[in-house]
Design a protein around this nucleic acid. Structure first.
Lengths: 95, 95
DNA sequence: TAAACTAGTTTATTTTATAAACCAAATGAA
DNA sequence: TTCATTTGGTTTATAAAATAAACTAGTTTA
């Protein structure tokens, strides 16, 4: 029983964790909302959303609002499980 | 009041966090003890202890036990404060 | 005395995070 | 109308971190 099982590296990142944290509570959010809440740059956010999507933690939907592009992120069931697991693992480090 | 204040990058690292977590409870520990508990390589542990020492979070004492070198790490008051602060900050991400 | 082990450090490589530069379209001001 | 600015991003380049591999120095064991 190792005391410190590895932390999911995909979640152990400030920005990705903040994004997941937001999406856990709101279910679905726009790119600009996530950008404002996390105070990240668009470039960084774009890259990190990509990674979370490729891991299957998020679903990214691209559409238009009026004439402008609109990117929406939604957490998946797999993402929720991974986040919960991450939190449990982390607790062994900080308590 | 930003929801996600930055996490101390020195502590937001799996191995350094595990080391600090151990030292919070035991106060003082040998290199080999830390290596076993964290299941890290000696090289990685050496590098990370250095960083924590340079930040003033640990004090590293080098001596000999019999004829063999002995490296001991001890958490500082500053390290304890930083760890506690990190935990508080992190809670805003995971709850 | 040679092989293997201990207790690490140093250097090199890979992976991440982040920033900077860029793009396409839409809007606003002169 | 046309040129500057803004929106909503993506792509590429750079900096920083984590990790692994190689190395050092000495010790113990066969």
């Amino acid at each position: 029983m190792g005391e410190f099982k590895p932390l999911d590296p995909l979640l152990h990142s400030q920005l990705r964790l903040a994004v997941m944290s937001l999406l856990i509570s709101v279910e679905e959010a726009e790119f600009t909302f996530l950008k404002e809440k996390t105070e990240s740059t668009a470039g960084n956010l774009s890259v990190q959303l990509d990674k979370l999507e490729k891991a299957g933690y998020l679903e990214i939907v691209k559409s238009f609002r009026g004439k402008r592009p609109l990117t929406t992120a939604k957490i998946t069931a797999h993402g929720i499980r991974a986040f919960e697991e991450y939190v449990l693992t982390l607790k062994n480090y900080i308590t």
